[in-house]
Computed example of a mutant assay.
Amino acid sequence: MDFSGAYTPGHLLFLWNGFLITLYVALVSIILSFIFGLAAGTLRYAKIPAVSGVIAAIVETIRNLPLLLIIFFTFFALPEIGIKLEITAAAITALTIFESAMLSEIIRSGLQSVEKGQIDAARSSGLTYTQTLFLVVMPQALRRMVPPIVSQFISLLKDTSLAVVIALPELIHNAQILNGQSADGGYFFPIFLLAALMYFAVNYSLSLAARRLEARQT
């Protein structure tokens, strides 16, 4: 284990740049997947004829596919039909597709957890179905969904490492390059230990934030 050789300023900067790519891809994917997941989950909950069925079929199909396959499809298969994405865009697209499906199920379940009595009371007070959904059901459901949604975001951050298969210059990709510069493999432990600590720092911070937010709402 060569800590001094592994932790040179140049190596640390290279690893840090990869981590910034990881955070960027994760952040954009989180925002987009939450938007699409919220829309898909709400439409499924609303049980709009035809629309709900189509969305359910798409969501269930995506949820039962490996994320790695979706990444491969986005980067290698889409160009065959004229849609060519650069590496970062392909990674964000694949992660957004997969995580949107996962989040939509969390959101649909959260909406269904709101007691029917509150919905009936809101409707009897004169609120329309849409007003009841967004003013009564949604606020309560979102509070209950905080822990599973944050857990899914943590999984998304870790899943960015799968984009190494398309050479996205993220944390694990850069760690592998640095490890390859060591003839005797002496960089492996220090480099990947530091990468693990970077992942842990962000994911643990997200977990703490979720716990505090949940505690405030109880």
Rank of each mutant, 00 (worst) to 15 (best):
D2T: 03
F3S: 00
T8V: 02
T8M: 05
F14S: 04
F14M: 08
N17F: 14
F19A: 04
L20P: 09
I21Q: 06
Y24Q: 14
V25T: 12
V25W: 03
V28H: 03
V28I: 15
I30R: 00
I31R: 03
S33I: 09
G37H: 09
A39Y: 11
A40M: 14
T42C: 08
T42F: 07
L43A: 10
Y45C: 07
Y45Q: 11
K47Q: 09
I48M: 14
I48P: 10
A56K: 15
A57C: 10
A57G: 09
V59W: 01
V59H: 01
I62F: 00
I62Q: 02
R63S: 08
L67A: 04
I70V: 14
T74C: 15
L78R: 06
L78Q: 04
P79I: 01
E80R: 13
G82R: 07
I83Y: 07
I83L: 14
L85G: 03
I87G: 02
A91Q: 03
I92M: 07
E99T: 14
E99A: 15
E99D: 15
E99L: 09
S100T: 10
M102E: 13
L103Q: 04
S104I: 00
E105H: 00
E105Y: 00
I106S: 10
I107Y: 06
R108Q: 07
S109I: 00
G110M: 07
L111W: 12
Q112L: 14
V114N: 01
E115N: 15
Q118A: 04
I119K: 11
A121V: 04
S125M: 11
S125H: 02
L127K: 09
L127I: 08
T128W: 04
T128L: 05
Y129A: 13
T130S: 11
F134G: 00
L135F: 12
L135A: 12
V136P: 08
V136Y: 10
V137I: 14
P139T: 02
P139D: 00
A141Y: 01
A141F: 02
A141L: 03
A141D: 01
L142H: 02
L142E: 04
L142K: 01
R144K: 13
V146S: 09
P148I: 01
P148V: 01
Q152V: 02
F153M: 12
F153E: 12
L156H: 12
L157H: 05
K158D: 06
S161R: 11
L162D: 05
L162M: 11
L162A: 10
A163K: 04
V165I: 14
I166G: 10
A167T: 14
P169G: 07
E170F: 13
L171I: 07
I172Y: 04
I172V: 15
I172A: 04
Q176M: 11
I177L: 11
I177G: 02
L178T: 07
N179A: 13
N179E: 09
G180C: 04
Q181T: 12
S182K: 06
A183M: 10
D184S: 11
Y187Q: 03
F188I: 11
F188D: 02
F192G: 03
L194C: 00
L194W: 00
L194P: 00
L194S: 01
A196Y: 03
M198C: 10
F200H: 11
F200E: 05
A201P: 10
A201R: 10
N203P: 04
S207Y: 05
S207P: 01
L208Q: 13
A209K: 01
R216A: 12
Q217V: 14
Q217Y: 15
